[in-house]
Design a binder for these strands. Structure first.
Lengths: 133, 133
DNA sequence: GCTTGATCCCGTAGTCGCTACGGGTTGCAT
DNA sequence: ATGCAACCCGTAGCGACTACGGGATCAAGC
């Protein structure tokens, strides 16, 4: 009735996540337990949506659920924790950089092998050769 | 003995993978079942090591186990499959490129947020703000 | 030949972040 | 009042391993 209390379906949709994912977040303690209708359906308030969006945005930026848990705790504890948040973000950037470097390295190898393929007269497939070495 | 028949431990070590991983690969049909000693221990031949190294190298280059299964089948079927192998590698390069682009995008966002932090006088933590939007 | 300690056996369960399934209940509009 | 969408819950599956535990086997030293 009257728009107060989102259903889990609407909440999920409004944050762009799967309904089951919301239940999952609740199960692992990332989303707080919402109120219930008399019949037992979950009923969410606007702050739940805020929380869910925070989680989703953090996921999009590659944070793990444990990191997000810490970020939430920090974000609820005050301005002076900004440095800790920044440190977490900085650490994360470092690991993202490492992943990018990894991917670029393997891409180089793959491109070289594919290029060798197109080169023409290999006796054996250069890609397979690369993999077999 | 005299060097014939590697134990699973030596095989794993020689390819730089975990012993349990070799058993896992066997279970899912990626590694062929080796012979056994009278007491039931696995006994590997050089071609097993070749296979395992192929798998590991392919994993390092980011291929999934299913893709590796196909690569092995192709590599065992002859030279004229080179084009198919090349196509698989090309597809993989495309998905690697997409991953790199994703990571670079999120890195930009993170760096900006962290930079805003260091900027000085934000009322609320810019990283948290970024996540909460 | 016997003991010791490393290695191996097997099955099962845990990891991360979801996603899917299925059978039953509730909510709401007609 | 009825129909059907949406919800409930628990459980199992994904990929690619990794870990655990209790028992068997292997190889080397004495």
């Amino acid at each position: 009735m009257s728009g107060r209390g989102l259903t889990i379906g609407r909440l999920a949709e409004s944050a762009g996540v799967n309904l089951e994912t919301v239940r999952y977040y609740e199960r692992i303690g990332l989303m707080p337990e919402p109120g219930r209708t008399p019949g037992g359906h979950r009923s969410y308030e606007p702050e739940h949506r805020q929380r869910l969006r925070f989680i989703r945005r953090s996921r999009e930026l590659g944070f793990g659920l444990d990191a997000i848990r810490r970020l939430i705790a920090l974000s609820e504890s005050g301005v002076e924790t900004c440095r800790e948040v920044r440190d977490m973000a900085q650490d994360h950037i470092t690991s993202v950089d490492a992943k990018i470097a990894d991917l670029q390295r393997l891409r180089r190898v793959l491109r070289q092998a594919v290029a060798d393929c197109s080169d023409g007269v290999a006796v054996r497939c250069p890609v397979i050769e690369e993999l077999g070495s």
